[in-house]
Amino acid sequence: MGSLPIFVIDADPLAEFSWGKIESAKNPPLTSPTESAISRCFADLKARGERALVTFLTAGFPTLDHTPELLDALVAGGADVIEVGVPFSDPVADGPTIQKAGAEALAAGTTMEGILDCVRAFRTRHATPIVLFGAYNPFFHYGIERFVRDAAAAGVNGLLIPDLPLEESEEVLPMARAAGLDLIFLVAPPTPLERKRLICEKSSGFVYYISVRGVTGARASAHFQLEKPLGELREVTDLPIAVGFGISQPEQAAEVAALADGVVVGSGIIDLISKHRDSPDLMEKVSAYCRSLKDAMADCERLG
């Protein structure tokens, strides 16, 4: 009868697998994290008593022709770090807003090479650190070794790949570090403490704390319970902590800024672009929105 094939696995996977088993000492940072543009950015802000506004923009949304001007608008609005979203056909971690933006970007013909060209041009205008944010397959398919080289040459400063967890990161981390790119890891609410430590040991530039369970997206009523998880994170790392997922209102940004080193806003920006895409004031509106977030973050600190 239907006996489970006990013969197929001769090792008890759990005996081998524990969080502590992932050797933390195997890959010390190849470049000191403090040397990267992203680390410097966070350090400079900290010296001035500011928090980083980390803005997300889906590259190629609505088209790649819009992207350079939108990036300029983010910088003008006070963005300290920009996450450039690389669209993917099957984005498992994204909520509806960013899914739609990505689908539209792809339909408009956005490619990885086009995105790198965009970054290359941006780099002639601004020093603002750029992090490419996206699903692993487009990077993997490009060829990691070639990709980190091309990305670094284009002026990319870091990579954030949500579906490349700690366990699979060895195939990217050494090459990214060698090319001078920060690989930024995510920590989520269910991540156990010991695992947080291991993740932070691999991460550089900053560590990204996911503020809510589930996918990306604006949540009007999101309540962020950050004291405990961020407190735990501080215990295991000196890296700057940016918090994202579900933050779109200035008041939310202020609430998060009271505890974090950086606040990530994504869907709110995409929503704004969707709403005003045909307006001549689009760029001004994007800048003004960023400014409202940044100001709220500054107010909060004065209160604090």
């Binding site: 971690a93 989520a188 996911i210």
Partner: peptide, 21 residues
């Protein structure tokens, strides 16, 4: 193979593996 998933799912996958075992 492997597990190329967002961090949010990793603890759930590890729990499932242990429970299945």
């Amino acid at each position: 193979g492997g597990r190329y998933v967002p961090e949010t799912l990793m603890p759930a996958l590890v729990e499932l593996e242990a429970e299945y075992e």
